[in-house]
Simulated scan of single mutants.
Amino acid sequence: MLHISALEKLVHEMSRLPGIGPKTAQRLAYFILKSENEFPERLSEALLRVRAEVHDCPRCFNFTDADICRYCEEPHRSDESICVVEEPADIMRIESSGAFRGRYHVLHGAISPLEGIGPKDLKIQELLDRVNNGIDGDGPTIKEIILALDADLEGDTTILYLTKQLQGKGLKLSRIAHGVPIGSDIDFIDDRTMGRALQNRVEL
Rank of each mutant, 00 (worst) to 15 (best):
H3L: 08
I4C: 03
I4H: 11
S5D: 06
L7Q: 15
E8F: 10
E8L: 09
V11M: 15
H12G: 12
M14G: 04
S15W: 00
G19H: 00
T24G: 00
R27M: 00
F31N: 00
I32P: 06
L33I: 01
E38T: 04
F39Q: 04
P40C: 00
S44Y: 03
A46Y: 12
A46N: 14
R49M: 06
R49D: 13
R51Y: 05
E53K: 12
H55A: 03
T64A: 03
T64I: 04
I68V: 06
R70M: 09
P75I: 02
D79M: 11
E80M: 08
C83A: 05
C83I: 01
C83P: 06
E86K: 07
E87W: 08
E87R: 07
A89I: 06
A89Q: 13
A89N: 06
A89D: 11
D90Y: 07
R93K: 10
E95I: 03
S96D: 15
S96I: 04
S97H: 10
G98E: 13
G102V: 06
R103N: 12
Y104C: 13
Y104V: 08
H108F: 15
P113H: 01
L114W: 08
E115F: 08
E115Q: 14
E115C: 07
G116I: 02
P119T: 02
D121T: 13
K123C: 00
Q125N: 12
Q125Y: 03
L127F: 07
R130P: 10
G139V: 14
P140V: 14
K143Y: 03
K143M: 05
L149I: 07
L149Y: 09
D152N: 13
E154K: 09
T158A: 09
L166I: 07
L166C: 09
Q167A: 05
G168I: 06
K169G: 05
K169H: 10
L173M: 12
I176S: 13
I176E: 14
G179P: 03
V180D: 04
P181A: 04
I182L: 09
G183V: 01
G183K: 02
S184R: 07
S184V: 02
D187N: 14
I189M: 08
D191I: 08
R192D: 15
R196A: 07
R196V: 05
A197D: 07
A197Y: 04
Q199V: 15
Q199E: 15
N200H: 14
V202R: 15
